[in-house]
Amino acid sequence: MSDDVNVVIKTTIRTMLPFIQLYGFYVMTGTEGAGGGFQGGVILAASFILYAITFGAEKGREKAPESWNTAFKSFGLYIYAGVGILTILYSLGSAEFLNYSATFLSLFVPHTVARGILIADVIEVGIGITVAASFTSLFFDLVWKGDEDGRD
């Protein structure tokens, strides 16, 4: 491929990546209820993978190091489990995991539906962060495995 084509591709990818990531976050939180965390996480992971394919695996690994992927996988899981535990603690005696209607947010958000949407968005962000980090880590594991075997 000629250098002119590479410049066009790299410039296009560099320009589109923030929009792809913004769309991934929108898919995670844009619905009025539960759903979208997995799909948004996959879109975010696809943006990191697209960067690594375009600019090279080494440069992609610099942008998304394995230590960050591990931290984000754990952080997303902690968000999910933490909201579930808080809903158990503050569920007014019902002790239901991820009960959207009776939570600690009742002090700040009086309407039950608004609380449910807010909690669902927080949960979906936790799921999305975990999925994005997992898929990005999986991609780089497969790339490095191919390099070790002498295959592309």
Rank of each mutant, 00 (worst) to 15 (best):
F72T: 06
F72G: 05
K73T: 04
S74Q: 11
S74W: 02
S74H: 09
F75Q: 01
G76W: 00
L77N: 05
L77D: 00
I79M: 04
I79C: 11
Y80F: 13
Y80R: 03
Y80T: 03
A81Q: 10
A81H: 07
G82M: 06
V83C: 09
V83Y: 14
V83F: 09
I85T: 15
L86D: 05
L86F: 14
I88T: 01
I88R: 15
I88W: 15
I88K: 06
I88G: 06
L89Q: 06
L89Y: 10
L89R: 09
L89P: 05
L89N: 06
L89G: 04
Y90I: 07
Y90T: 11
S91M: 06
S91C: 12
L92I: 10
L92D: 12
L92M: 12
G93N: 10
S94F: 13
S94C: 07
S94I: 14
A95T: 13
E96T: 14
F97W: 11
L98Y: 04
L98N: 00
L98E: 05
L98M: 14
L98H: 11
N99F: 08
N99V: 10
N99D: 15
S101G: 07
A102W: 00
A102M: 15
A102C: 06
A102G: 00
A102R: 14
A102S: 10
A102K: 11
T103L: 03
T103N: 07
L105V: 11
L105S: 02
L105Y: 04
L105E: 05
S106Y: 09
S106Q: 13
S106T: 07
S106W: 04
S106P: 11
L107N: 15
F108E: 08
F108D: 01
P110G: 10
P110N: 11
P110S: 03
P110Y: 04
H111D: 14
H111A: 13
H111I: 11
H111F: 15
T112S: 00
T112K: 07
V113S: 12
V113P: 02
V113H: 12
A114D: 12
R115V: 05
R115S: 03
G116S: 13
G116P: 02
I117G: 09
I117W: 02
L118R: 02
L118V: 05
L118T: 12
A120E: 01
A120F: 03
A120M: 05
A120I: 08
D121Y: 00
V122D: 13
V122F: 09
V122W: 09
I123K: 03
I123H: 00
I123P: 03
I123W: 03
E124G: 08
V125M: 13
I127P: 04
I127R: 09
G128E: 07
G128D: 10
I129W: 01
V131F: 03
V131Q: 00
V131W: 01
A132P: 11
A132F: 02
A132C: 13
A133R: 01
F135Q: 02
F135S: 00
T136R: 08
S137D: 15
L138A: 10
